[in-house]
């Protein structure tokens, strides 16, 4: 009997790993091996034209001690990440609105979601125009309302550029957030609200006591997506500002790309990649420590 159970268990384990294998293989080929490659490269002097030479910690030293742009892009990435809650809050409001039993809510949902499937390049080009200092729509409206004399050069000022890019990025992803939150909302049993109403809870109390807690896994999933976004959102910045002006919108990912392919320092870019990755692993660990149960919720979403 014990043998039979063990045999069954072995078969099950085989099945599990067989099922995981294709996905693991794809990730190994396209994520993990490249990451290891970067790891090796970061300790070498290397270019496409020359054999590699051992460099020790040269690149890491350069980065941490001398490279202001690295630090700036590091902070920009952190700011970008910290802005995720704004988008999520906005999405939450929309989700609550389209969750009400009103006519045409499917139309509203579709419209809000519509920005997500647009090619990022197109999003970049159109927002570039919206923000344009002389002819952009936003400045046109501001001027028509008499709120500013000369146009505000949103993307050309180191003060406004990063927030401006963040707004465009939120515009693009808010529909995606909304859908996630909306689905979370729809899963909350109506009976809970009814019971709370009978107990005389106000709308705000019901929101705080029922909606928010039960929505936590969805909100957390949004956060994860927001954080991924701040690490991988490349196209939008590339098109809108190319990291400028004066690196005001440089994120780690755009900086790595610039260093590798525009400045031809693949070895240095590899070191940046490793630090970028370490930064994320640290964040994940921190989130895990701080939120305990929440990370478990992400695992199961």
């Amino acid at each position: 009997m014990a043998f039979a159970i063990r045999k069954k268990r072995t078969r099950e384990l085989l099945l599990i790993w067989f099922f995981l294998a294709p996905s693991l293989l794809i990730f190994a080929l396209y994520r993990i091996i490249p990451l290891l490659w970067n790891g090796v490269l970061s300790f070498e002097f290397w270019s496409p034209y020359k054999p590699a030479e051992f460099a020790g910690l040269y690149h890491y030293e350069e980065m941490i001690l001398y490279d202001d742009v690295f630090w700036q892009s590091f902070w920009n990435t952190a700011v970008f990440m910290a802005s995720a809650p704004i988008g999520i809050l906005f999405a939450l409001v929309i989700a609550l609105l389209v969750d009400t039993p009103i006519r045409g809510r499917n139309v509203y949902r579709t419209i809000v979601f519509m920005s997500y499937p647009v090619m990022t390049v197109a999003v970049g080009i159109i927002w570039q125009w919206l923000y344009n200092e002389d002819v952009g729509l936003i400045n046109y409206i501001l001027r028509s309302l008499g709120m500013s004399g000369r146009g505000i050069p949103f993307l050309n000022s180191s003060t406004y550029a990063l927030p401006a890019v963040i707004v465009a990025s939120i515009w693009q992803v808010v529909g995606f957030y909304m859908i996630i939150l909306l689905t979370g909302l729809q899963n909350i049993p109506q009976s809970l609200y009814e019971a709370a109403s009978i107990d005389g809870a106000s709308a705000w109390q019901r929101f705080k006591r029922i909606t928010l807690p039960l929505l936590r896994p969805s909100i957390f999933l949004c956060f994860v997506i927001g954080i991924i976004n701040s690490f991988t959102n490349f196209d939008l910045i590339y098109v809108m500002t190319d990291g400028g002006p004066s690196h005001a919108t440089e994120l780690l990912v755009t900086y790595i790309y610039r260093v590798a392919f525009k400045l031809g320092q693949f070895d240095y870019a590899a070191a940046l990649t490793i630090v970028n990755f370490a930064f994320f692993v640290f964040l994940a660990w921190l989130a895990n420590r701080l939120s305990g149960g929440e990370a478990g919720a992400v695992e199961s979403t």
Binding site: I33, N38, I228, F231, V253, Y257, A270, N276, F277
Partner: peptide, 24 residues
Amino acid sequence: SVIMLFLSCMMIPFQVTIIPAYLI
């Protein structure tokens, strides 16, 4: 570990993997 691995794979931006991915 597998779940952690999946999650961390998400964070590797594609742009940094271009050359090795191409070679593979």
